[in-house]
Write a protein that binds this DNA or RNA. Sequence first.
RNA 1: GGCCCUAUCGUCUAACGGUUAGGACAGCGCCUUCUCAAGGCGUAAAUCCGGGUUCGAUUCCCGGUAGGGUCACCA
Length: 440
Amino acid sequence: MKTNTDVRVRIAPSPTGNLHIGTARAGLFNYLFAKKHGGTFIIRVEDTDKARSTKEFEQNMIDSFTWLGLTWDEFYRQSERTEVYKAYLQKMIADGFAYESQEEVKEEGQRASVIRFKNPNKVVTFTDMIRGDISFDTTELGDFVIAKSLEEPLYHLAVVVDDHEMRISHIIRGEDHISNTPRQILIQEAIGAALPLYAHIPLILSKDRKKLSKRDGATALTDYRDKGYIVGAFTNFLAFLGWHPEGDNEIYSIEELANLFDISRVQKGGAIFDTDKLDWFNKEYIKLISEEEFAQIVEEQSGILITDKTFLTLIRERITVFGDIATLLTKDGEFGPFLFDVEYSDISKIIWKDSTSAQTKEYIIHVISLLESFDDSQFTAENLKNALWDYATEKGRGSVLWPIRYILSGQDRSPDPFTLMEILRKEKSLVRLQDAIEKI
RNA sequence: GGCCCUAUCGUCUAACGGUUAGGACAGCGCCUUCUCAAGGCGUAAAUCCGGGUUCGAUUCCCGGUAGGGUCACCA
């Protein structure tokens, strides 16, 4: 596809809920398409439904796109464009394409009069950039309602008028809009609008292969931001849901994605939102963070400044999202770098397999004696390992090292005892070990 | 139910008539190892079914089947 400077695309969310993952991806595809072709990316808030739209949801939408880095070139609100729609409505009525219809009031809130589109009852065919030709017989649509009144336009009217007025060249949206397209084309023909190019992208599905909805857990984009996903990982993952560039590489920045983006490679079938893969992307991006930046993130997340590189690496290797950092480092609000209180009530957790408590005690005493010959400055994992390894091997590594590690960390699972001692330093390490001798 | 869309490993996908059907995630196994994590190596796993077209179909066509979307005075 050659570069077209007249590319103008839009994402048109309705602020009736927090910005949904599906809308975020549609926004991302529009953004990538715009960047690829040097076009214009527009956000249009579809808030014609005054009863359901709120400023809070609009703010969530703005926050979400801002987080994703989808900077927009133009921004509109349909609620501020009532006069525009009114003018089109009046012209459509004058031209005989629409009419005021008297209605039987069946429910509360229903109007006695609405504006309906005069359906020409024809077959409409359009070409979808992803799916090819799609045809509909619009007869079954009847004379559908396009506005409650001249001042209260409905979705189909507002969309078509805006896409026309804003000179939208390509409409890239979810597959759930395919069935809306014939209605919109009919209105385009009535107001004399040029036909935009359509691309209906596949839906994002939940595990049961249904359209992802609020019931499926975290569907708000900001949920992922708040859990501590890295934005680059998230957009990378999102872009790969229903699309894939050539080659086997999967890690791409948003700029690279934009360069590579090709709408004709977009998948036709829906894709399940698989958080396992998202987590993998996030871990890959965590590996790419510089040490300085990572230390800063750890401090932001836990309130603890850690400068020890070994310690930072331990944290980095053990987290999936930044939100995991605090749970790794603190318990009940207390700082414990993998080091929690030891459960002495259950001694069997401290003793390795077939060792006895007497043997374990003996090992600990001996280890303490070995450690005491070191200065605190010599307390590095390497030195400590060298000092203890032969003894541990002689007595059985598990028998010696497991209790030491457990006493130092208070957990079944933790970094190795040498690294732990390096982090704890000499004094704290010895205090914990001596304390254990009395309690075993 | 009507209309519309879709169909490759469990998941995301590659292939644009000719491949031992490739990669990634997840899984499993082994190595490393006191545990966990990380890492290394390896393994299993797919073209929905049936007809065509063709020398040859994952690929093109038709029909089934299955799944999904949509049928508002919401968007």
